[in-house]
């Protein structure tokens, strides 16, 4: 689905943050040794979603091009595979988390690039969240 408008992008942000949080919520039972990390990420996802919404609602007055700024952004390029088989080992879990974070990072960076013409707040926040995702990718690699 094409994410033409800011509104559609915001809805998609909610989806990926909630979906990935729900992945970690399920995964934490499988790998209790990472409980602290995953619980922190779940909280962080909720914070990211809130920050994006607050920024969007805060600057929508100035982003007069909000209906046209995300041409080419397609949610199909950022589908998250959230299914972890029952008997998955740690390496599979790591791989899945890596892919999820990598996909979300890619989304935020592309959305930031496309929205650079909007008020600076939105692409700046997207890049900040992408950086946090990069940190998570490094964490996953070190598990």
């Amino acid at each position: 689905m094409n994410l033409n408008t800011m509104s559609a992008v915001m809805t998609f942000v909610s989806k990926i943050e909630n979906d990935s949080a729900s992945f970690y919520d399920k995964t934490v039972k499988k790998y209790p040794e990472f409980e602290e990390t995953f619980q922190a990420w779940i909280r962080e996802n909720a914070k990211f979603e809130k920050q994006v919404k607050q920024t969007y609602f805060g600057v929508i007055t100035d982003t007069l091009e909000s209906n046209f700024s995300f041409g080419g952004l397609d949610s199909g390029n950022y589908d998250l595979d959230l299914v972890l088989p029952e008997n998955a080992g740690l390496s599979e879990g790591k791989k899945k988390a890596f892919e999820i974070e990598e996909t979300i990072k890619r989304f935020y960076l592309e959305a930031a690039r496309l929205s650079d013409g909007l008020m600076a707040d939105i692409p700046r926040l997207f890049r900040k969240i992408a950086k946090k995702r990069e940190d998570r990718i490094l964490s996953v690699s070190s598990f």
């Binding site: 408008t5 800011m6 509104s7 805060g58 929508i60 007055t61 007069l64 909000s66 209906n67």
Partner: peptide
């Protein structure tokens, strides 16, 4: 809806 939110803001 984006235009309406801009108007509300």
């Amino acid at each position: 809806i984006d235009e309406s939110r801009g108007e509300t803001r």
